[in-house]
Design a protein around this nucleic acid. Structure first.
Length: 1099
RNA sequence: GCGCCUGUAGCUCAGUUGGUUAGAGCACCCGCCUGAUAAGCGGGAGGUCUCUGGUUCAAGUCCAGAUAGGCGCACCA
């Protein structure tokens, strides 16, 4: 016979210091290389494709990363346990502004001129280093939280093979006609000197409320029709755009009023004493903007078109070539019509600065207006406009002033010159650069675009095939985003990024794309030694123009780094340039599952989707579906008061601290199990402690219990003498049945991405059913001396349940599961290499599960009743009486199994009466079963319900006997079956009962001498065992006991129950001595006036 | 302004296709147990299911509106 396994105890400090135990698991995984082993074991499995959204390693990971990574890890582990091959390639996002910004900070430089001065090559070298600042921290945390990822072979977005691949994607898009170069008004960051894409504008924290000026400016008519000065009144919140003004716009179909308004007067002077002026505003706004005024006339907007006015600033502002049209200087400083003008605020007259607004740009294009730029790409004035008055706290609006800072000086200047009608401040939400926080401005700059609008329908259609969890993120949020899709600005006038693979000819403007380093080498003749894709070396490569023979130079820009990460499905394999990458891509596309934060809707979720929509067209072998088929979205992690974590508030939870204190399994379990993943989550350390204690503590105790006795008895799960499940006692079959139900439930939920639901199911099972019911009920079976079939059955049942739990919890709590599994199944390797259990339907016993439910219900009521009547459970009582209308439940209670459970739990000698109704102590009441009847009788439900409540006992008896009865209602006959009537019992007794409508319970409270004696014996056992514990005895220590009862009744009672007493206290010898023989010991009060002294020693 | 989500006990959350008396954990109060023991268990108290209206025989659940919070979109001339 094989050696029985030694069930090792859990680490002694598992409950008090779980982190140490987890570290030991990590050490084991490291030494065994468990991850690699599991991956090898699944090498032949069907692929479950997971893509890791690449983090940037130049920032520290936080607690929200623990949530996201746990969700990723749990699903991957689960799928792996389903036998799937789950490749888990790590990835790093290494390009882009955030990196450059970090390096600028490091070098204590700021802005493009300083970078250029520092040297682009050196700057990019610094960037390449900087991206790894926190790589170790990321890897350490990922390892510590059990996030299994292949960090040995990550994809890195700056790697040559990666860039080579991204070039391929871009070049294919270019060849498909989807890439174009345009001049567009874009949100622009002056500090970074580059435009932002619309999804960068969607990053959290971009829109911030800041005070903006709100100014009403007079545009004085060039032709003054009367002696009183006449102006068009325009409103703006961006005075800095006024020097670049070239036109005004009005709505053609709106009415504008010519209003006579009193000029402002000094305090105390009569209104109008300073004279009047005439102002034009849209009719709807006249009252609000002008206040008291005299209406002199009205004109439609279209009638105002062509009206000329005097420029507000008489300075030479640089003009720029719009490119798309030839400007006509004669058109400047006139009124034009534009449909977009609204009357919700302002004056209905909109000042036009084409370079700084998309709508303005469009008006300028249609009317061939001149484009003036007083503010350049750095966000600073390109010429002197206005000085600051003496003593002003603000500076002048001179060349070099940052646009936001020019506002005050300009406003002051307008005021001094009498052109300011009204001047105030309003708080607006204003966009800021998502990384450097500089206020953005809209600016017309040349940029490269991907015509994603051409893919809109395809993206919408493919989106409908993605399973979003939760669904509304896809249907509403993402869908809406796609509906409003605009072309993707992929160019950034920066340094550290994938260079755009587009070359243009200086002579004939011919433009071409390059698919990768190979093609570049072919076109250029050869590439320099150690060719690097990055700036500046790539810019040294020129190509001969295939059209005119001129010289083609690469466009200066680099790629939006979001494109990098969106291209990871292809570039992580180096597709198509790396050998074998085509096969690899086909195997690993589309993703079965991705999971990131809600903020990625416009980030990675979009870029993957958009590029996927194109690549699946280019490469039909990739299928016609979306790039990913399931997307699990997780919400924000807030602090315990529901406040967003921020450095400023100091409420950031350090993941390391939480992990050190409670162990990462508790953190994982809490984060995933406490609520749906997409809901904002509060991180409450107190709740975390509760998870650790309540669930993990109980589970550990359950294992400890098993382990202790299994070891003593050398239990072997492979023992041939273990009875088949069918031959085990009911309570065992019950737990086996519940175990199977749990397996089925968790399988369904985990496979359905309902991780929280699965966690809850496991937790309920462990705490309520396994620990609090099964183990508590069956403790004695494990203690008893013999090693017979019953004991083996108990061991096997408990072992099976713990085994199932360790397997089911493995994806979510990988450490604890491993600790348990390795002890329960020594020599079988890692729990993570196992296949998930499959429920055995044949072992599910619904009648037993129902029976235990009934038992638990009656026991709970019985305990409440005992409490009510003041008899503690130690005092045995003669009988328990039960009344119920539920005949099936009564039948269950009568079974030996249930009877034993109930009577033992409640310490009662036997059933008193167990019946439906004796007509005296309780009464039956009937209620309609709305669920079954409702559908059938519909509108007559109320009447039927009333009739059922009024049924007489004879009819109830019929129903209880299983017969249907017929009700007459307004001439109609309604058949009522037993199922349609819910019969409840109600007590009519004058003494204490416990009832819940289903059962009525009462106790036989009469105590005879025998019951009292037994109660006393139990009291004695209780005290003696307390003493045992206080004396520091081990559980299996035998004792010699000396008892000194205070009176003869007690002496007789204890003597009568001596075998019981001895057995319960493990006394090998019990000796009764005189009361004064044990003077040193404490006298216990056993109640009813009895006292007892005792002494014990180890036998 | 528009869209989505959330609002259930003091706190954190469950609540299946509408159906009898809305549940759990924590905290609180009162007990119990003591061979899992620096654990464990039971009982009690605690709810106008945010509000209003509607559909329905029946609404925490469906519909409409309001309200509060969150997230997103748009506008911000």
């Amino acid at each position: 016979m094989a050696q029985a396994p030694r069930f090792e105890p859990l680490p002694a400090d598992f409950s008090s210091a779980p982190a140490a135990a987890e570290e030991s698991v990590l050490a084991l995984w490291r030494s065994e290389d468990t991850f690699a082993h599991v991956q090898r074991a699944r090498a032949g499995g069907e692929a479950f494709v997971f893509w890791e959204g690449p983090p940037t390693a130049n920032g520290k990971p936080g607690i929200h990363h623990v949530l996201a990574r746990t969700l990723k890890d749990t699903v991957c582990r689960w799928q792996s346990m389903l036998g799937k091959r789950v490749e888990r390639k790590a990835g790093w996002d290494t390009h882009g502004l955030p990196v450059e910004l970090e390096v600028e900070k490091q070098l204590k430089i700021s802005g493009k001129p300083q970078i250029e001065a520092f040297g682009v090559a050196q700057f990019n070298a610094k960037c390449r280093e900087s991206v790894w600042t926190y790589k170790d921290e990321w890897e350490r945390l990922s390892e510590r939280i059990g996030y299994w990822l292949d960090y040995a072979n990550p994809y890195v977005t700056y790697d040559a093979t990666y860039v080579d691949s991204v070039w391929y994607v871009l070049a294919r898009m270019h060849k498909a006609g989807l890439v174009y170069r345009g001049k567009k008004v874009l949100p622009f960051c002056g500090r970074c000197g580059t435009g932002l894409s619309s999804h960068e504008l969607g990053q959290p924290g971009v829109y911030k409320d800041i005070p903006d000026p709100s100014v009403y400016v007079r545009f004085v008519l060039a032709q003054q029709p009367s002696a009183e000065r006449e102006s068009l009144l325009a409103w703006t919140t961006t005075p800095w755009t006024l020097p670049s003004n070239v036109a005004l716009a009005v709505h053609p179909e709106r009415e504008y009023v010519r209003a006579r308004v009193a000029l402002p007067v000094p305090k105390g002077a009569a209104k109008g004493s300073a004279g009047h002026e005439i102002l034009w505003v849209v009719a709807e706004r006249a009252k609000v903007v002008l206040g008291e005024h005299e209406e002199l006339g009205r004109k439609f907007g279209r009638e105002l078109v062509g009206t000329a006015y005097v420029p507000v600033f008489d300075v030479a502002v640089p003009e720029v070539e719009p490119g798309a049209w030839k400007p006509d200087p004669a058109g400047s400083f006139k009124v034009y019509s534009a449909e977009y003008v609204t009357v919700d605020d302002g004056t209905g007259i909109v000042h036009q600065a084409p370079s700084y607004g998309a709508d303005d740009w469009e008006v300028a294009r249609r009317n061939r207006l001149v484009v003036r730029q007083a503010v350049g790409a750095e966000g600073r004035l390109l010429c002197d406009i206005a000085g600051a008055p003496e003593g002003a706290k603000f500076g002048p609006a001179v060349r070099g002033t940052f646009f936001k800072e020019a506002d005050k000086a300009l406003a002051k200047d307008l005021k001094n010159r009498g052109l300011m009608f009204k001047d105030s401040e309003e708080t607006h939400s204003y966009p800021h650069c998502w990384r450097c926080s500089t206020p953005l401005f809209y600016y017309a700059a040349p940029a490269w675009f991907v015509r994603t609008t051409a893919l809109k329908e395809r993206m919408l259609e493919q989106n409908r095939r993605i399973r979003w969890v939760p669904g509304e993120v896809g249907s509403a949020r993402f869908g809406e985003w796609l509906e409003n899709n605009v072309d993707w600005n992929i160019s950034r006038d920066r340094y550290w990024g994938t260079p755009l693979p587009f070359w243009t000819c200086g002579t004939c403007e011919h433009e071409r794309s390059v698919e990768g380093a190979g093609e570049l080498a072919r076109l250029a003749g050869k590439l320099p030694e150690n060719f690097d894709f990055h700036k500046p070396s790539v810019d040294t490569i020129t190509l001969p123009c295939e059209k005119c023979g001129g010289t083609m130079r690469r466009t200066n820009a680099v790629l939006d780094c979001w494109f990098d990460s969106g291209a990871m499905p292809y570039a992580q394999h180096g597709f198509p340039h790396v050998k074998g990458s085509a096969e690899k891509l086909r195997d690993q596309f589309p993703a079965s599952y991705i999971c990131e934060g809600l903020d990625q809707t416009r980030g990675w979720f979009y870029t993957l989707h958009a590029i996927g929509a194109f690549m699946t067209l280019e490469h039909p072998e990739l299928g016609d579906g979306p790039a990913y088929s399931t997307c699990l979205v997780n919400g924000l992690v807030l602090d315990k008061d529901g406040v967003k974590m921020s450095k400023r508030l100091g409420n950031i939870v350090n993941p390391w601290e939480a992990i050190a204190k409670h162990g990462v399994d508790a953190v994982r379990w809490y984060l995933v199990g406490s609520a749906a993943p997409w809901l904002p989550k509060r991180f409450d350390p107190a709740a975390l402690a509760e998870v650790q204690r309540g669930f993990f503590g109980t589970l550990a105790n359950s294992y400890r219990f098993f382990q202790e006795y299994a070891r003593i008895d050398r239990f072997d799960p492979a023992d041939a003498r273990i009875p088949q499940v069918a031959a085990r006692p009911e309570i065992d079959r019950w737990l086996v049945s519940r175990t199977q139900s749990l397996v089925a439930d968790v399988r369904r939920r985990f496979s359905d991405y309902d991780l929280a639901g699965g966690a809850r199911s496991i937790e309920t099972f462990v705490v309520d059913e396994l620990s609090n019911w099964y183990i508590r009920r069956n403790r004695r079976r494990f203690w008893k001396g013999d090693s017979g079939a019953d004991k083996l059955a108990a061991f096997a049942t408990l072992h099976g349940a713990l085994r199932a739990v360790s397997l089911l919890m493995a994806p979510l709590a990988p450490f604890t599961a491993e600790l348990l599994w390795r002890r329960l199944e020594p020599g079988r390797g890692s729990v993570h290499a196992q296949l998930a259990p499959v429920a055995d339907e044949r072992l599910v016993a619904p009648e037993l599960e129902r029976g235990v439910e009934v038992v638990q219900r009656v026991v709970t009521m019985g305990r409440a009743l005992r409490e009510k009547v003041g008899h503690k459970v130690r005092q045995p009582l003669r009988a328990l009486h039960v009344r119920s209308s539920d005949t099936a439940a009564l039948e269950l209670l009568r079974s030996r199994f249930a009877s034993e459970l109930v009577l033992d739990e409640l310490n009662i000698k036997g059933w008193g009466s167990l019946g439906a109704d004796d007509g005296k102590l309780c009464r039956l009441t009937a209620k309609a079963n709305f669920r079954t009847l409702g559908k059938r009788v519909g509108g007559r439900m109320k009447a039927v319900a009333a009739r059922i409540e009024a049924l007489d006992p004879a009819q109830l008896a019929l129903l209880r006997a299983g017969q249907a009865i017929t009700l007459e209602l307004e001439g109609e006959r309604i058949e009522v079956t037993p199922e349609d009537v819910l019969i409840a019992v109600e007590s009519t007794a004058s003494f204490e009962v416990e009832t819940d409508g289903r059962f009525v319970l009462w106790l036989d409270l009469e105590l005879d001498d025998a019951l009292v004696a037994e109660g006393l014996a139990r009291e004695a056992v209780n005290r003696i065992n307390g003493l045992r514990k206080d004396s520091g005895l081990a559980v299996e220590d035998r004792i010699a006991l000396e008892l000194a009862p205070g009176d003869d009744t007690l002496r007789a009672a204890l003597a009568a129950h001596e075998p019981f007493l001895a057995a319960e206290t493990l006394a090998t010898r019990v000796r009764f001595v005189a009361a004064d023989a044990l003077p040193a010991s404490e006298a216990w009060d056993l109640g009813r006036g009895h006292t007892l002294r005792a002494r014990l020693e180890r036998a």
